[in-house]
Amino acid sequence: MDSIRKRARELLEKNTVKVVIGYGVGSDNTVRAIFVRRPEGVEELIFDETCVQNLAVYLLKNEIKQIGKLCIIANISALRTILQLASEHQIHEEELLCLSVTPNGELLEFTGFKDIENYISSCNRDLPDKESEMIKKLEKMSVDERWQFWMNHLSRCIKCYACRSACPMCYCTRCQVEYNQPQWITVEATLMGNFEWQITRTMHLAGRCVNCGECARACPEDIPINLLNYKTVLTVKEKYNISAGTNANIDSVMSSFESDDKENFIR
């Protein structure tokens, strides 16, 4: 924690970066994102195992981008997000400096995407155990049981789109749900609209999701929507052997193809 504060102070004092995006303490001792712009502000920075939010979501916000060069305190999810965003040509190396801390407390500083790639290749990128087990459990259910499971959950959705706002990969300036000619997805929170929205969200994130789980953490109704994304993460890994957020120069999974993609259902 001290090493992060020290380095952040140096960076801000030397004016190498204009803002440090990091974790601070919010109300009720919760962890929240803070934006440090003055060297004396670094004392508010914290970094420990409770800092799970994927701060990379702020990187593409216009009001953040226009401040100038950014420094981000990144956990593994955020580092993977940065690689994926780089592969989609959304961020550039010179705009960004990443600080991170290894599990044994060593400060890491990444100036280039290549460094991040090397570090990520040695990190655990598996889905969390709890979610993997849940997916296995759901897959074992009958189709009707699965349908019932999702209908029970999705009936609570209030269409607040917190999942979209929290997702660092959902950066379209105009989302499909905002199109009304034709109106693909109902504006109000109806069960079918909620169902269609989740299909749309998941399909648009297929092959891009870095399994940070931010969507489910953001959901005020505790709907396990991250399972849908994790399912596509598994599908993409199994069928195309690609995991998002490992390479800054990779083609988008869903807009590329191999002529011998394997399937067993086309007649």
Binding site: L138, E145, T202, L228, K231, T235, K239, E263
Partner: peptide, 21 residues
Amino acid sequence: FHARRRWIVFRELVDFLGMDV
């Protein structure tokens, strides 16, 4: 080819959501 990529993921997803594939 692009369509096939999409169908593979889509079919797995709707199956997971409990639609009858």
